[in-house]
Write a protein that binds this DNA or RNA. Structure first.
Lengths: 180, 180
DNA sequence: TGGGTCATGTAACCTGTTACATGATTAG
DNA sequence: CTAATCATGTAACAGGTTACATGACCCA
């Protein structure tokens, strides 16, 4: 995932590991942080796979730097990742993909938001259908107090999905509006 | 994290790895899934650390099973984890901790929700203060199209935090209401 | 006889975290 | 002189994923 985040940034323009680190720290830290060591490691992996190339640039008064550029195959990989319908189990992959969604067409993105919304609505139905979470475990656990918290967890899930669906709707509307 | 999830389940009553797997699959899968191999591995770790003990139970017509029980030190570890204010970078640790929050007092939980809410509100302010995300990168990226998606990401973050704050409020209200 | 459930794991891999390590320049 | 910035990494560990492996019983 970080791999694709880095690829997305280099796609905006050539960058060094240090610059990528700064972007994560200064601009993307609200949804994702990466530490230096991992960035440098991923850059090596990306290079090995032929998704980026590097060139050493000498500077005066500053240490040498390695500037990375994306290759054609890297651009393909970035697009492949963006097209892939997989948002993992946390907000981060979702934010990552939307962040770099400019590489896809508006049409593709609108369809994508529609699909995410539909899945969210389906999930809400699934949650709501189960009247009590962990019914099987009620019998094991004497204390009825604990089920309060089980239901709070469930409620969180429902509200999250509702929020997601509404946000998708608004994103679609924004893309439609700006288009016409 | 899975370690503590498993510990929380065993705390409800003795269980085998297989039973834990079923709970994850049948009841907790909507916010967390764990695969068998990982469960068995974590059980070994928990045992090595003295948080659980195991006993082999022979069955007729079925394979032997290893029943795990929580120890006093395991119960302490569970409580330590619940008290710790650390919700990682995804929804899962939050859901996990709330799910097992019955182990803490109502007062402790109300304070916890209050803190999460306050942090969420602070985060909203931080997000809103930055009028444009990735200002520094606008200059690099010629295409103004991409910033639409940057702002969608930001909007997602704000809405998530709003949802979180409201949910915390409602949880607090529920705990107050049921108390009096 | 073939698939599902019960019940246990191992091995390899990928990704993220923490700690450590170096060394020059520049601003206060 | 000292702290920050620029710029690079390595090593070890932790946790999650995927694939593989075994074997008996039960139901259709």
């Amino acid at each position: 995932m970080l791999k694709h985040g880095i690829l997305g940034l280099i796609n905006y323009g050539d960058m060094t590991g240090y610059e990528i680190m700064k972007v994560f720290r200064d601009s993307l830290s609200y949804f994702w942080t990466a530490n230096t060591s991992q960035i440098y490691r991923e850059l090596q992996t990306l290079k090995r796979k032929g998704f980026v190339t590097d060139a050493v640039v000498r500077q005066n008064g500053k240490p040498d730097k390695k500037v990375f550029s994306i290759t054609e195959s890297g651009r393909e990989e970035l697009k492949r990742w963006l097209m892939e319908y997989d948002y993992g189990n946390s907000n981060i992959p979702l934010c990552m993909k939307v962040f770099f969604a400019g590489e896809l067409s508006r049409k593709e993105n609108m369809e994508r938001f529609k699909k995410i919304k539909d899945d969210a609505l389906k999930t809400i139905e699934r949650y709501s259908a189960a009247p009590e979470i962990m019914d099987a475990y009620k019998t094991r656990v004497e204390d009825p107090e604990v089920s309060i918290y089980w239901n709070m967890t469930k409620e969180f899930g429902i509200r999250f999905m509702k929020m997601l669906a509404e946000w998708c709707d608004d994103c679609i509307r924004e893309l439609e509006g700006a288009e016409g």
